[in-house]
Write a protein that binds this DNA or RNA. Structure first.
Length: 423
RNA sequence: GGAGGGAUGGCAGAGUGGUCGAAUGCGGCGGUCUUGAAAACCGUUGAGGCGCAAGUCUCCGGGGGUUCGAAUCCCUCUCCCUCCGCCA
């Protein structure tokens, strides 16, 4: 969420940001300011009343101590109606606060000035392209390759669980594990701390990163224990520091975390979801950073570079998109997508998205830091995939297939694949 | 899963109805002393809200209650510890 003080000072800017992010209705801004004013007025009255009541209680205490029971009794009589109005005001204060906060949660993050203004994915800016756009007629999509070699079993996945829960078998299973290890090891070399996180989170955590109420339908729920299966490692890793105050000298903090991810993907059908393109359970290595505000945009660039490094090292062709205001999501202020070329499908596949949230997440989660002067400030959070596995698997299989049907092991993965040349 | 005991500031740990947002120790920060450091001594040191400020309010695991007044009493939930059971 945004800082209410910021909204108060820049209402027009906030409205403009909402429009740029594709929300026609900007009245929430005026409503939140109104609700905030109402709330503050009530707080003021309530505080005064409580102050008075506290004074009286203290007097009573003092009188009782001196044994002046009659005088104390007189004051107790006065407090009767005060108690009732305090209770009433407390209730009112709570309602107004909720009202304000609910409005506040509906206002999206402000796009950074460098973000292109636009409405759809067509307005995203393709910043760079690396490698050739391979268009060989004979190259098969990964699902045909995988089937021919017995590497991925989609139908047994359907039997055991449902669509979107494949089995990886033999060399493909090992390849996926090799990729995960390679990604994590590379991040460790770049000064990220490895984290192993819970795969289920509680409601507070789901709220912390904004999965609730925003993307509630995206998550699998374990109702009996009131847990949610994580849709990304971002959720447990960012919540790792929820409610904490960092010392300035400890920043930046960088984590790398591998987890499976579960997404319901309700409503997705068709060609987009063939093979490994879109799954209900998939693996991902996630990079998360907690940084000082003044460094967050530099950290976004290095985060993006760290993700790109992996794609490069695997020898895959890819392009980098700077997402436009309308396509980047509610919580981000700037976001890059990295898409690899899939030679078998002849299309781009998103494998990473790197975002700066500025203080938007941190404010909601109360993650802060103490600066040199001892002042407590909101810090900035960032995250990015480094990388999502299934589409990388797809792209690797397709890219490294030979006309014979054999698939070469990418050079950087050989140490993780027992030195073998072919899968 | 059963029985019992707990949850207090960065940590340890007092406080069991009234000037308690909380003793004390450690740690942190500032200072005195010292060539420098250590030790010693002095001071300072939780978070949030409202307010220009003075100030004021809230927070002693979460929620609810009793009371003029709750860290302290009652209910409830969660978590931790000990013992028993089960177990990768």
């Amino acid at each position: 969420m945004l800082d209410i003080a910021f909204i108060k000072e820049n209402p027009e800017l906030v409205k403009q940001a909402m429009q740029q992010k594709g929300e026609k209705e900007t009245s929430a801004v005026d409503k939140v300011l109104e609700a905030d004013a109402d709330w503050r007025k009530t707080v003021h009255t309530l505080d005064n009343l409580r102050s008075e009541s506290n004074q009286k209680a203290k007097q009573i205490g003092a009188l009782m101590g001196q044994g002046k029971k009659d005088e104390a009794q007189a004051i107790i009589k006065e407090t009767g109606e005060m108690k009732a109005s305090i209770k009433e005001l407390e209730e009112k204060e709570r309602v107004l606060k909720d009202e304000r906060d609910n409005l506040l949660l509906r206002i999206p993050n402000i796009p950074h000035p460098t973000v292109p203004v636009g409405h759809t994915e067509n307005d995203n800016k393709e910043e760079a392209r690396f490698g050739e756009i391979e268009d060989s007629e004979w190259k098969k999509p990964h699902w045909e390759l995988a089937e021919a070699n017995g590497w991925i079993d989609f139908s047994r996945g359907v039997k055991v669980t449902g669509a979107g829960f494949p089995f990886y078998i033999g060399a493909a299973a090992r390849l996926q594990r090799a990729l995960i290890n390679y990604f994590i090891d590379t991040a460790i070399d770049k000064d990220y701390t490895e984290l192993q996180a819970p795969y289920m989170v509680n409601e507070d955590s789901a709220k912390g990163t904004g999965q609730i109420p925003d993307k509630e339908d995206q998550m699998y729920v374990v109702p009996r224990d009131e847990f949610f299966l994580i849709p990304t490692a971002e959720v447990p890793v960012t919540n790792f520091h929820r409610g904490e105050i960092f010392e300035e000298k400890d920043l930046p903090v960088r984590y790398v975390c591998y987890t499976p991810c579960w997404r319901r993907e309700a409503g997705s059908h068709g060609a987009d979801v063939r093979g490994l393109n879109r799954l209900h359970q998939f693996d991902k290595v996630e990079l998360v950073k907690f940084v000082k505000p003044e460094t967050s945009y530099d950290e976004l660039e290095t985060l993006r570079e760290d993700a790109e490094y992996l794609i490069n090292a695997l020898g895959l062709s890819y392009r980098r998109l700077l997402m436009c205001t309308g396509d980047m999501g509610f919580t981000q202020s700037k976001k890059y997508d990295l898409e690899v070329w899939s030679p078998g499908q002849k299309r781009w596949l998103e494998v990473s998205s790197c975002s700066n949230f500025e203080g938007f997440q941190a404010r909601r989660m109360m993650v802060r830091y103490r600066d040199k002067d001892g002042k407590i400030e909101t810090l900035h959070t960032l995250n990015g995939s480094g990388l999502a596995l299934p589409r990388i698997m797809a792209s690797v299989l397709e890219k490294y297939q030979e006309e014979s049907g054999k698939v070469l092991v990418p050079e950087v993965l050989k140490p993780y694949m027992g030195g073998k040349d072919y899968l």
